[in-house]
Amino acid sequence: MQDIVYSTVGFVHLVAALASLLLGTMVLALQKGGRRHKRLGYAYVSCLLVMLGTSFGIYRQYQGFGIFHVAALLSAVTLGAGMVPVLRKKPARTWRTLHYSFMYLSVLELYVALVAEVLVRMPGWSFWEVVGASVAVVGVPGAVLFGRLRRRWQRSRRPQVAAEVYA
């Protein structure tokens, strides 16, 4: 465990990241709009905020502010862009699409970050190889699925669950 987690902050970050991955996946896969969706969604947001906050206490890899900190800032923007429309219910005609789209992208970013985090620890991988592999393995298939889901979300008031896309 010492080779994966180097501090208490790193441990909290890891636990929050794993919880965010699990909760975010559940929110995407389950029916939208109900009590369970909202509870799991707020749990996801809470865990992700802890993960993002603790990321700024981890400086081992770059001995200072690094590319993963930039990714954390971008993830925070994506999360905010997904939550503001649902909290305000504005713009009236598109808030649902904005919420679903940005929250989907938020979870997708987590999976890209997971692959990047694993690959960056493997000897012999350059930064750009890590980026390319992460985008190829997670980003491209995730973007294709997002395109299919988004079209369905725009056609209906309540979006389809992810499992129904291929049914």
Rank of each mutant, 00 (worst) to 15 (best):
M103H: 05
V138K: 04
L145V: 15
K89S: 11
V137Q: 01
R148T: 07
F127K: 14
L74K: 10
R93P: 08
W153C: 11
W128R: 04
V107S: 06
W128A: 08
R157Q: 07
A136R: 04
L98R: 15
V135S: 01
V130E: 02
Y111K: 03
A116F: 08
P91M: 12
G80R: 10
S134Y: 00
V144F: 13
A76E: 02
V118R: 03
V131P: 04
A133Y: 06
L87H: 09
R121W: 01
A76M: 13
A163G: 06
V115Y: 00
W128P: 00
V120L: 06
L79K: 08
V84A: 14
P159E: 06
P141W: 03
E129R: 13
V137E: 01
V131W: 06
V144R: 10
R155W: 01
A133V: 15
G132N: 06
L119V: 00
L119G: 00
G82W: 04
E164K: 14
A81K: 14
A113P: 05
Y104Q: 06
G142F: 08
V77G: 05
V144K: 08
R151C: 02
V86E: 08
L114T: 11
L74Y: 05
A116I: 02
S126E: 11
P159S: 09
A116P: 06
S75R: 06
G132R: 02
H99M: 07
E129T: 09
A143H: 06
P141S: 09
R155G: 14
L105K: 09
V84L: 14
T97R: 13
H99P: 11
V137Y: 01
S75M: 11
A143V: 12
A162V: 15
F146P: 12
A163H: 09
F102V: 04
A163Q: 10
S101Q: 01
R96V: 13
